[in-house]
């Protein structure tokens, strides 16, 4: 059986039929420590800029 990533939860012509689901690579990136560390820095910078714009 194919590895489960969420695609298997889509039901034809139900309300979730038109959405997108992540593939194995997108899901792997979510917990890959090196990639996430880089994202951590990027998200923090973006958040600080957004906070700064409000002050």
């Amino acid at each position: 059986m194919a590895q489960k990533h969420g695609e298997e939860n889509i039901k034809a012509y139900s309300k979730n039929f038109t959405t997108m689901t992540p593939g194995p690579f997108a899901k792997w990136l979510r917990t890959n420590l090196i990639f996430q560390f880089i994202r951590f820095i990027v998200i923090n910078i973006k958040m600080l800029v957004v906070v700064g714009k409000g002050h």
Binding site: R30, Q36, F37, R39, F40, I43, K46
Partner: peptide, 14 residues
């Protein structure tokens, strides 16, 4: 540019 969202471990750390 400043409206974004993503899913990952980094969000947990934050």
């Amino acid at each position: 540019e400043y409206t974004f969202g993503e899913i990952g471990l980094a969000g947990h750390w934050i």
